[in-house]
Amino acid sequence: MNAKKRQLTVAVTGLNAIDSPGPGVAVIRGIRDCADWDVRIIGLSYESLEPGIYMEGVCDKVYQIPYPAAGTEAIFNRIEYIHEKESIDVLIPNFDAELYNFIKLSPKLEEIGIHTFLPTTAQFEARDKINLFEFGKKHGFYVPKQVVIYSVSELPKVAEELGYPLVVKGKFYDAIIAQTLEQAQKAFHKLSAKWGTPIIVQEFINGTEINVAALGDGKGGTISAVPMRKMYITDKGKAWAGITLEDDRFLEMARKFCKATKWRGGYELEIMLSIDGKPYIMEVNPRFPAWIYLTVGAGQNQPAALVKMAMGHDVKPYDKYAIGKLFIRYSWDLITDIEDFQKISAFGEY
């Protein structure tokens, strides 16, 4: 058979392959590795120094898009403009902060012929850290006990319930471990000044951190799940190197998660395996992790599988992956010219 390969145009965000990287470049590598198509990659960037804009063999063309805060109308207008030029088949957003908008926009995008493969708003919100405890209780996962509070005066009662040490978490980011009430109060003030209320107070779980990158088919099935343990982390807590593991407990958790939520798309489970051997879900990231290319390397190309499902194809679940595959992240100084930077900064296209 020498039929021409299918032409496919995929737009991807998250090109910030820096020290705390977005997953975009890894997702693109996965899609390019798949031999089923002839792919054209449209990079969507927010800032003009995202390395993925300039890297060889990553994007065929890059467009700047407005930040999520500009709202769905502005984002849709920009995507529509890009679509007119590029005829996008599939769009893969890779940042937490932009997902809310893209989930909302997905019916409108579908209407103009752009496919996405995203969870619903309800699924997206159920795994939000404010709701995670309720979610865990409902579906029978181990989740750290947590209480959402609005006032520092609620702390003593909550602390008594959870015991020390406890974790004080901001609404969006940051977590501080407190050993005493004074420390907890200090943490409350610090985090509420930065992120506002509510503040989440959480039971401290000690143990080993495991991450699972997984892909749900939207009907309760799990297409792929690959567990990884970080071998070394940067001072920002990001994985520097990691290794695939063999442990059915974690695969079982991913399958249970997909079944319970009918999750549609990629996600990452952050699991803490407690000292007494209980796997707690600490957080659920509603998109592929930055280390997603390890799943490709281990034999489960999650980004390519997602593109196929977005295009409406049936994808068979992967059943095995290579154990003991490592990823080691490295940095690389790319050389380019000022004109390139000027072009993307001023025209928003490169």
């Binding site: 927010y46 800032e47 003009s48 467009y63 700047q64 898009i65 407005p66 930040y67 805060a69 500009a70 109308e73 502005a74 984002i75 207008n77 920009r78 995507i79 403009y81 900064s345 928003g348």
Partner: peptide, 8 residues
């Protein structure tokens, strides 16, 4: 913050 697409 870039302004591309924020013409509204």
């Amino acid at each position: 913050m870039n302004k591309f697409g924020t013409r509204t």
